[in-house]
Simulated scan of single mutants.
Amino acid sequence: MALFPASGNTPVSTFIPEIWAAELMVPLQEELVLASPVCVNNDYEGDIRAPGDQVHINSLNRPTVVTYSRNADVNAQLLDTDEMILAIDHGKAFAFAVDDVDRVQSASGSDLIYKATEESIQALRVAADSYVGSRMVAGALTANKKTFTVGTDDVFDTLVDYGVILDNVDVPLRKRFAVVKPEIKAAMLKHDRFIASSYGSEIPIQNGVIGSLAGFTIAVTPHLPTDVEMIVGSPVATTWGQNLLSLESFRHPTKFAHVVRGLHVAGAKVTRPEALVIASVAP
Rank of each mutant, 00 (worst) to 15 (best):
Q77G: 07
V259K: 05
V228E: 00
F177S: 00
T226R: 11
Y199C: 02
R174C: 01
L3R: 06
Q122H: 10
V66D: 07
P273N: 15
G52T: 12
L244D: 08
I278E: 02
I195S: 15
L60I: 09
M1S: 12
T149R: 14
I16M: 09
A50K: 15
G267S: 09
T239G: 04
R251D: 10
I218T: 05
R193L: 11
K185M: 12
L189A: 09
E274G: 08
G151P: 07
R193N: 15
L24S: 02
A187D: 14
A266I: 08
N61R: 13
P11W: 04
R70V: 14
P182L: 08
L79M: 06
T117Q: 01
I205V: 09
T158K: 10
K175R: 15
T64D: 09
L141V: 00
F148A: 07
R176Y: 03
H56G: 02
H56R: 14
L112Q: 12
E274F: 03
D157Q: 12
S246Y: 03
K115L: 10
E183S: 12
D153K: 07
Q206T: 13
Y131A: 03
L32K: 04
L34F: 12
V180I: 13
V38G: 06
H258I: 05
Q242N: 13
N207F: 05
L224T: 06
I16A: 13
D170L: 14
T221N: 03
V33Y: 04
C39D: 06
D102H: 06
A279E: 04
T226Q: 14
I16G: 03
D170C: 07
Q242S: 14
D53H: 15
T117C: 06
F96R: 03
L112T: 10
V12K: 00
M25K: 14
Y68N: 07
F256R: 09
